[in-house]
């Protein structure tokens, strides 16, 4: 169970070209990241890292300023990672070598968001596979609402019945 806990503090973000790793428990709040590049690293936003906020070069420069291993990065193209130079201080090769040679197929970059609404449905957002009683469908960068009150006439989806029946929970 310890292992699960450590994973929950690990996030990965990608723009297709590089992947930025965020290891929350290593952060000492030196704040270089958001002072340098708030467009990408905004602690007041969820998710707090927006890889579309700046060009790759700027993101790399900023991640390299992090004094700890809280923020590290790598190229998505593994060939480039093997020839990386030490001036790229926060490349995973130098900060977190345990992440090198990870199977790219296991890379988890954009977690799906599951929100349990107050007295309402479950809202699932992102890229996921919906298995509806054996009928599978891929949902890419979109969202669905799943009924939680049991009263929807459009199961398994929410149709607003929770309000009519006064569902709480």
């Amino acid at each position: 169970m310890e292992r699960d806990k450590s994973l929950s503090y690990e996030r990965k973000y990608t723009n297709g070209e590089i992947t930025v790793y965020w290891k929350q428990d290593a952060c000492v709040h030196a704040s270089y990241c958001y002072r340098e590049l708030i467009e990408v690293f905004d602690p007041g936003r969820r998710p707090w890292v927006d890889m579309k906020g700046a060009p790759t070069e700027r993101i790399i420069e900023t991640v390299n300023l992090c004094p700890t291993e809280a923020l590290t990065w790598k190229w998505n193209d593994d060939e480039k990672n093997n020839s990386i130079q030490p001036d790229q201080t926060n490349h995973i090769k130098f900060r977190r070598p345990e992440l090198m040679n990870q199977d790219p197929a296991n890379m988890k970059e954009n977690p799906v968001s599951v929100k349990v609404m107050v007295d309402g449905p479950i809202v699932v957002k992102g890229s996921f596979t919906l298995d509806n009683n054996g009928k599978k469908k891929e949902i890419i960068e979109s969202l669905i609402s799943i009924c939680r009150c049991g009263a929807s006439n459009h199961q398994p989806f929410c149709d607003g019945q929770h309000r009519k029946i006064g569902f709480t929970g």
Partner: peptide
């Protein structure tokens, strides 16, 4: 590669979610 999690609707049962996801309980 594009899907990160599996959302499984179990007939007359719960919703099973596995994979890479974050769950937020707003209450």
């Amino acid at each position: 590669n594009r899907t990160e999690a599996l959302i499984k609707v179990i007939e007359a049962g719960p919703l099973k979610i596995t994979g890479n996801f974050i769950i937020k309980d707003l209450k």
